[in-house]
Amino acid sequence: MLLLLFLVLCYVVAGVGAAASGDAGGTYAGLDNPVWAPPGWLFGPVWTVLYGMIAVAGWLVSRPSVPGRRPALIAWSVQLALNALWTPLFFAAEQYGAAFLDISLLLAAAVVTASLGFRVDRRAAWLLAPYLLWVAYAAALNLALWLNN
């Protein structure tokens, strides 16, 4: 039942992002993208998988009653809140600089989440590894889009 709660939380964030993105495909396609930018259609499937992995990682950290559990769950919550803010900043408000600040903080929070999660359940940290890589890539893309547009 707790896993379901984590899944709902993550996919609510995904829903908020989808609602805030409006015509994200059109907006993204209209930007001066770097040559290494992925096609717009790729974001939905990647984030769908990543949100599931983020949820399972949170659930794994929440299960054992161990000393490091609370800080890891706080970090997990912070990274999810920062994640929820990015899409409205980037797509709805078109504030690419503010979105870059947010995604930079998100990357730092995700690193802290994975590090603290590693102390509680190593599987949680490994589940967050693709998320860390994607957010780092997305941060670089956000920076390039901010500078180019």
Rank of each mutant, 00 (worst) to 15 (best):
A109L: 04
C10M: 06
M53Y: 00
N148A: 14
P45M: 00
Y11F: 15
P71D: 05
W47S: 05
A108P: 09
A55N: 06
I74H: 09
G26F: 14
Y96L: 15
A114H: 04
V66S: 07
G97H: 03
A93G: 11
Y131I: 01
N149W: 05
F6Q: 09
Y96Q: 08
Y137M: 10
S77K: 05
A138C: 11
A20I: 11
L85R: 01
P130C: 02
D23H: 07
W76E: 07
G22L: 08
D23R: 05
G97C: 04
L85C: 15
W36V: 12
A110R: 03
V8A: 14
L9D: 08
R123F: 03
A144D: 14
L60Q: 10
A29H: 06
A110Y: 03
L5Y: 07
G26Y: 13
R63S: 11
D121S: 13
L133A: 15
W126Q: 10
F90Q: 03
N149L: 02
L60E: 04
A24M: 11
V111T: 08
A108Q: 04
N83A: 01
S65D: 15
D32R: 14
A140K: 09
F118W: 15
W41E: 14
M1W: 14
S65C: 10
M1C: 13
P71G: 02
N142T: 04
L143I: 03
L147I: 14
V49S: 01
A14I: 03
G22K: 08
G68V: 06
